[in-house]
Amino acid sequence: MRICAPAFAATIALSLGAGVAMPPPAAAQQVGPTIVVDVATGQVLQSDRAGAPWLPASLTKMMTAYVALSQVRQGRVSLNTGLTVSQRAARAAPSKMGFRPGTVLTIDNALKIIMVKSANDVSITIAEGLGGSVENFAAMMNAEARRLGMTATHFVNPNGLPATGQQTSARDMAVLARALMREFPDQSLLWRMPAIRYGNRVIRNHNHLIGRYPGADGFKTGFTCASGFNVVATATRGGRQLIVVVLGATSARGRAETAAGLFERHFASFGGTGVSLDSVANDTFSAPANIRDQACRRRGRGGPVYIESGEDLENEPVASATDPGNLSYAQMMAQPSAGRRSAGMQAIAAASGQVPSLLGPYRPTMDPVPVFIGGASSAPPPARAVPAAPALAAV
């Protein structure tokens, strides 16, 4: 039995407004660092280990997009500048588009592809076209990270594939998302597209809040076994926009449900911590966690399977009380204590082992955005190399 998302959202909002006691966060061991930020004010509404180092996976592509858009803003390139796929790009590990060496595509199409498809080969194409090499582009990424105050972040490549020394924090990812929204509001389509269309293929966004959670309008997901399922998400309600970062969930569904639950909690209340995002401290001494055993495993015959290609929500069961690895932190947090449940919550609790979902049926707000190959033959000479930053202590 699935619970209707709007009805459940309203129930939670009423429960929160009534001051219902919440169970302790410690019950949710499968979720890593989280943070909730008000976009307009930069105030932190909730955080849990937000400065802890974590593996970014494909959240890395947010900085790839930021550097590319910065190059456009500086007039070095335009969105119609063509980039050529190299042998190195074509050999990239999946997820990728599979373009052949010599294929040309514009920066505009390349950015749309990496933000929806999260294509590793196209990310390398952007890096080589704008930086001359992956290594030089990574230096450009790190320079922008330093300028933005992302003190726990270090990039080694433009796509987030596993690499020694690559790390970030929930706090830093919120800083980056806020910078993209504030500096490039005219490019918001990049992070709110529900899908792209390439030829006859329709490729849906891995951010499963878009089209399923009311008001969701961004941003980017990331996944490797070591990092778990990460998401930077944004949503707007009543003119108020929030950023939620969830790192280290153990399933794509748990990642999306957790983010949705955190949105519900903070759209229902204007309280906060009184702390600004910039003042959240990063841990620059520890090494990132590796949660491979939790995120990529097979648990029991016929049970849920979490594998390295596990970005597809449709392949996962609905979260259930008998499958705690697929039960999100925010879902548990949002449920009132047994003695003070409303009639609606009692009905939910009586459901046959199912955990209520905050995600409705998929209803995209726009048609798939077309992307295509072709464009100018090459980009202008790459940007000047940026001096390497001192390595973080954890690197």
Rank of each mutant, 00 (worst) to 15 (best):
E264K: 04
L277H: 11
A347N: 14
V39L: 10
G300D: 06
P6Q: 15
T153Q: 05
G211S: 11
A235R: 05
Q46R: 03
L392M: 13
V116W: 00
A119N: 07
Q331T: 00
R88P: 10
R255W: 06
L59I: 08
G302Y: 05
D217T: 03
R240S: 07
L392Y: 09
F263V: 01
F372A: 14
G102M: 13
D108H: 12
G303H: 13
P361W: 02
P33D: 09
L14P: 06
Y306H: 07
N205Y: 09
G274S: 01
A289M: 07
Q241W: 05
L111H: 02
V156Y: 01
L247E: 01
Q294W: 03
A40P: 11
G98Y: 06
R299H: 14
V134W: 07
L69H: 03
A226F: 06
I243E: 03
A170Q: 00
G274K: 07
T224R: 02
A281S: 11
G102S: 13
G360I: 04
M173C: 12
S70M: 10
P6W: 10
V318N: 14
V305K: 01
A389S: 12
L358N: 03
I3Y: 04
G310I: 05
P382D: 06
G215F: 00
T81I: 09
L148W: 09
A383R: 08
S227F: 02
V202Y: 07
L45A: 03
A233R: 10
L55N: 04
